[in-house]
């Protein structure tokens, strides 16, 4: 029983950063901008939050600066990709490499391989929800997560409202679906693309802060370990719907929870279980794409 409880708790725990990336990234997806820089934005968020907290011993400031750092990356991405119409794949790749390089450079200069926040105890950051906490099983699964984890789940609903119930959401979708239509009613299409990318950037920064500072009190380089790309996979599988994409994010969270919890029993082969999330990702993508194309009768390239 314990292990199931642990797996479910860890599912929520590990889903949070992916969900944040997903609900932020869907706006760029809907605006028809392929943002592969989610990974880099998350990494820079993780790094800046831990570094700031390490130097100022102020976690809130760390989270804030993490979002600002990711936002800055978002501005660079939009400027090059939207204003100057550069190739978004190359720009995204550059940003991913840059984030990792900055972190590595600073770590080397600090003469350390990771930043540890020794002034605080991550257990203190966990919120215990009254009443819920005391319900057996459910309490131990739902309660005791850090603040940003709760924000990520509430964010799903918030982003759904923003996407489907407000002008802003409609305009982002119009820009992505038919840019000419948007222009013909005088929408500043670049503005909506910027906004969509920047929402994603801020969410990624938050995800990074959650990943490093809030959950572990620790930063090691490349600790995002492909979560940004997993988020992109979730967005594509869920076709940019906030709820559906978030469900895929949770599936990938579950995969990581499985890998963490099962590896305990694996003894010397424990490291092997680290591949579970990635194997599941490949399987999910395969299944989704097979289902999507099972009816395809068109040969070769499709003319869209």
């Amino acid at each position: 029983m314990d292990i199931i409880g642990n797996i479910l708790y860890d599912t929520i725990y590990h889903s949070a950063p992916i969900i944040l990336c997903v609900i932020g990234g869907i706006f760029a997806y809907k605006a028809n901008v392929l943002n592969i820089a989610l990974e880099g934005m998350m990494l820079i968020g993780a790094f800046v939050s831990t570094l700031t907290a390490f130097m100022t011993q102020n976690i809130a400031l760390g989270v804030l600066l993490a979002m600002l750092a990711a936002l800055a990356f978002g501005v660079v991405f939009s400027l090059m990709g939207v204003t100057f119409k550069g190739n978004v794949i190359i720009i995204g790749l550059a940003i991913n490499l840059l984030a990792s390089a900055i972190a590595k450079f600073v770590l080397v200069r600090m003469n350390t391989s990771n930043i540890t926040l020794s002034f605080m105890n991550v257990a203190d950051l966990k919120l215990h929800i009254p009443v819920v906490e005391n319900i057996p099983l459910v309490g131990s699964i739902l309660s005791g997560h850090p603040l940003i984890t709760y924000i990520s789940f509430l964010g799903i609903f918030f982003m759904w409202v923003l996407m489907y119930k407000t002008r802003f959401g409609i305009y982002v979708r119009v820009v992505g679906e038919n840019e000419d239509a948007a222009k013909s009613i005088g929408l500043k299409t670049d503005f909506y693309k910027y906004a969509a990318i920047l929402i994603g950037a801020v969410c990624c920064g938050l995800a990074g802060a959650n990943l490093s500072t809030e959950r572990l009190g620790l930063f090691t380089n490349d600790m995002t370990a492909g979560r940004g790309f997993i988020a992109i996979a979730a967005i594509y599988c869920g076709q940019g719907s906030p709820t559906l994409s978030a469900i895929y994010a949770i599936v990938f969270g579950l995969a990581r929870a499985l890998s963490v919890n099962l590896s305990i029993y694996a003894g010397p082969a424990a490291g092997l279980f680290d591949v579970i999330p990635y194997v599941i990702m490949v399987c999910v993508l395969t299944v989704v794409s097979v289902l999507k194309h099972k009816n395809n009768k068109i040969r070769g390239f499709k003319n869209e």
Partner: peptide, 21 residues
């Protein structure tokens, strides 16, 4: 225009009021 500037996934009323919701 010859090529309609409409958004296929939105409804008729949403398209008509696009920009003046």
């Amino acid at each position: 225009h010859q090529h309609f500037k409409l958004v296929p996934s939105l409804t008729v009323y949403e398209n008509i009021l696009l920009g003046t919701e």
